[in-house]
Write a protein that binds this DNA or RNA. Structure first.
Lengths: 245, 245
DNA sequence: CAGTGGTCTAGACCACAGT
DNA sequence: CTGTGGTCTAGACCACTGT
């Protein structure tokens, strides 16, 4: 029984390869397929499900890209011997926490318009002096400060004046306004907090912080957001899955 | 001129989609295609190059996955407005530095056999007490300590006793012995160094460090390596490119 | 409406691994 | 040698975007 109970619904708007990948992923997460198991070959699977081989292959490729399966020519496809973790996706911390069922609270420390300086103009591909929204937020989890976030968004991209960032994440606000993020570049490093940061984050001068800077681009390739964030390393870490392609 | 000077060599062993992707990437990096440029549609490109549409599509997909292009249905494919950076790959720091033309020096502080404890056995999917190679290295750049790396490899995977890790990276040693890494899970965080670490890294107690733990899996899905590394944040940062799929 | 990417088919041949 | 994934073809229809 190389792959139990996968069925596809051809009248669903969900792509066939996605349906198949979803069900295989669930089989892995529920233990029907365990680490090291080999699944049937692509041709047999495609035949078994009544799909063409390219479609079946696309389903498997999706899980290879997620780091759940590995393929080896001449051998077959196997489940990776790794504990179950989700891969890093293009979301904000707010999304992360909500998905985990936590209830983060966000305080907006500043929301104003500033001219682009050398740093932000370069990151956002706008002229020096161009109008930017500046958003500074402190995010806490059960009363404990977790992250201090500073974001810049060109005025030409969206009007942030109307948004309530105590209730809505920045990325959620983008999505609701038809801006679809596609690519982001992140740099992660560490340093010590200064006095102002320590006060806000509930620590002392000399505490370490994780720093993350990120530039995000939408589906037109346009830079829409640049952020510099500080995270308390005792409460947050970055997890990534790398896949060799 | 939507896509200048792409030619394919059908007698080359390099896959056609790879040849095409390579040349488009070079066109972007050399400025022949600049941020915001739209390339011709898939059908036209395939026709122009004498390829089938799926092959042309695969070439474009490769660059979308790298974060160089973005696609939008009904609109087209455009170059992302981002400064040129390489995407994170599944390599060691040693590979990174060598590629950058730097000459890192590595000192092996320890190479011995230890029994797996609770932590390492869980990370490597071996029994508690199973034999592991332990490798501790200090990496420096032009005399300046950069990273302190501790790695564990099951004895059942490979014999590390013969290797010279002053001259060869761990990943390079894997490759040379037919072990092909495919997937890795990383966690990045920060803390303060203790006294022993500070001495080795050339700093003082109270300095911040970037921490990274990584588990790597080969093309059979087998856990082959677990490492906990410390990086000096003034000399190193993690860069990642995220792509929404 | 025309143009674009998104999905899907039913084959084919090849390269590599293991027996 | 057999079986596997890797690549490639020449079409097709659909969904979405912007005019």
């Amino acid at each position: 029984m190389p792959l139990p109970e996968v069925v596809v619904n051809r009248s669903s708007p969900v792509p066939l390869y996605f349906q198949v990948a979803e069900q295989i992923e669930r089989a892995i997460q529920e233990g029907d397929l365990v680490a090291g198991d080999r699944i049937a070959n692509e041709v047999a699977l495609a035949d078994q499900l009544g799909l063409s081989r390219p479609t079946m292959r696309q389903a498997i490729q999706m899980l290879v890209d997620k780091g759940l399966l590995v393929r080896k020519r001449g051998v077959g496809t196997q489940v990776v011997q790794a504990p179950i973790r989700r891969s890093v996706e293009l979301t904000s911390l707010y999304d992360d926490l909500k998905r985990a069922g936590m209830e983060p609270a966000t305080v907006v420390l500043a929301l104003d318009r500033v001219p682009a300086d050398d740093e932000t103009s370069g990151r956002l591909n706008v002229a020096v002096g161009a109008g930017l929204w500046q958003l500074v937020r402190l995010r806490s989890l059960q009363g404990e400060p977790l992250a201090l976030m500073r974001n810049y968004v060109p005025e030409s991209v969206i009007d942030l004046g109307e948004a309530d960032f105590g209730a809505t994440g920045l990325y959620e606000h983008f999505r609701a306004n038809g801006i679809h993020l596609r690519v982001a570049h992140q740099t992660i490093c560490a340093r010590l907090v200064d006095e102002a940061e320590a006060t806000l984050l509930g620590g002392r001068v000399g505490d370490p912080v994780l720093t993350m800077t990120r530039s995000s681009y939408d589906d037109q390739g346009r830079a829409v957001e640049y952020g510099t964030h500080l995270y308390r390393p005792d409460l947050y870490a970055f997890e990534t899955t790398l896949v060799d392609r």
